[in-house]
Design a protein around this nucleic acid. Structure first.
Length: 413
DNA sequence: TCTGGGGTCCTAGGACCC
DNA sequence: TCTGGGGTCCTAGGACCC
């Protein structure tokens, strides 16, 4: 049997906003939100600084709503390249402490410090201070005997918290939490658990009728949740493939529903170019290329094609996805009188799956927007859309009323 | 209330092969 | 004849996460 481990989970506090503030100290102590283009239409808040949160602004809230809560908020367009570079600095710093580091997402990491000679709590304070002083990145840290508990612990005190969660204290700190706050329980599973009378993590840990849980969730998922509720998680900190990529995608939600083929194809060109460039930059090729469409009635389809030879070529990817678009969209079908029209497109996306790394160095490909950054590309996309809007007139389709359950789970960072 | 964008992992069913 | 069963690959979609 293995001796007990010491796992740290480091979770950046409002990471995107923190990166922007680190870049521009004038933003410090100001209500900053990171949100997408067309903020008054369909944009939502991706991240809010703590000053913005003090007005009640939350992640996934509409930007329009955020403005109602605070008219002075500063809206910044997300810059994923910038956040990736900060994420990499964060990762490189952690590697100076131990090689056993796993990046779980752009803004969080696990460290296995079981072999650390010294006081881990003191080390956690050092890590937090260094990240704040040298990189201007605030974080919360959880310390526990496994990944699941470390993750739950880092969530318990924000911002700038350090929380130790011991197995013998689960009844005090973990079990009273509502089941929704458990990692791995989302908006679909929570109601199922409620229907079985499970309201807290403690209820799940205590569960007598495991068979009915198995029936509702499937054996693998049920076992994993039940064990974790009891503080058991044997999964290892995976330091091998920290930068292994399995898929690359780009999608765009329009600020109105689109029924014009030209707009869809122009947008598709930008998206395919962006996916191709990102693959090329990382020296990757994909065996599967696909198109994602979300119709105005929110029906979503994903169609893909597998290739004999992997590609990262702009033109190849465009041709494949254009063919899929032609099969799944026909111009002129929409019915203005039908508020529930299902032929207009709300979102279009391109994805590349089954991605492999190339051995040889990449050959620079010639593409239409070769010299543009991702932000400039987005501006270019906006120009195309605006141009077409002018040509067609501002014939925005009146928004139909659709009844959908609001079951999005609030993302708390 | 009126719903983003980028990912990962898992499952189920169909096609195909032996 | 007119049909079994296992394995693998592929596609599509669901659930979850930040």
């Amino acid at each position: 049997m293995k001796t007990s481990r010491i796992i740290l989970h480091i979770d950046m506090n409002c990471f995107f906003a923190s990166c922007e503030i680190a870049e521009d100290p004038d933003l410090l102590k100001k209500p900053v939100i990171i949100a997408h283009d067309d903020p008054f239409q369909r944009g939502i808040v991706l991240t809010a600084s703590y000053e913005a949160r003090s007005f009640g602004i939350k992640t996934t809230m509409q930007v329009r709503e955020a403005f109602q809560l605070c008219k002075d908020i500063i809206v910044i367009e997300p810059d994923m390249e910038l956040y990736s570079s900060y994420s990499d600095k964060f990762y490189q710093y952690l590697l100076t402490i131990t090689k056993k580091v796993e990046m779980a997402s752009i803004d969080e990491a696990y460290m296995d410090l079981s072999d650390y000679q010294g006081d881990v709590v003191t080390l956690a304070h050092q890590i937090q201070e260094t990240l704040l002083k040298e990189h201007r990145l605030p974080c919360s840290i959880g310390i526990a005997p496994n990944k699941f508990l470390a993750k739950m612990a880092s969530d318990m005190q924000k911002p700038l918290g350090i929380t130790i969660l011991r197995k013998r204290e689960l009844n005090k700190y973990l079990w009273p939490l509502p089941i929704e706050e458990m990692q791995g329980v989302g908006k679909k599973t929570a109601p199922k658990l409620h229907s079985m009378g499970i309201k807290t993590i403690g209820d799940l840990a205590d569960l007598q009728n495991f068979n009915s849980l198995k029936q509702k969730l499937g054996h693998i998922y049920a076992t994993s949740l039940h064990q974790r509720a009891n503080g058991i998680d044997d999964s290892e900190v995976d330091s091998s493939g920290s930068d292994t990529v399995f898929s690359v995608s780009n999608s765009h939600t329009f600020d109105r529903n689109i029924y014009e083929e030209k707009i869809l194809k122009d947008t598709l060109k930008i998206l395919t170019n962006s996916v191709a460039n990102r693959l090329q930059k990382k020296n990757l090729k994909a065996y599967t290329i696909g198109l994602q469409l979300k119709y105005a009635n929110f029906r979503q389809i994903n169609r893909s094609q597998s290739l004999e030879n992997p590609t990262n070529d702009d033109y190849d990817i465009y041709k494949i996805t254009e063919a899929i678009l032609d099969e799944n969209f026909e111009e002129g079908l929409y019915d203005v009188d039908n508020q529930r029209d299902s032929t207009c497109i709300r979102l279009i996306g391109v994805f590349a799956n089954r991605v492999v790394e190339l051995k040889e160095q990449p050959i620079q490909q010639i593409t239409i927007f070769d010299n543009l950054s991702e932000l400039e590309k987005k501006a270019e996309l906006k120009k195309i859309l605006d141009g077409i809007k002018q040509k067609f007139g501002d014939t925005t389709i009146s928004q139909g009323y659709y009844e959908y359950p609001d079951n999005r789970k609030q993302n708390t960072d």
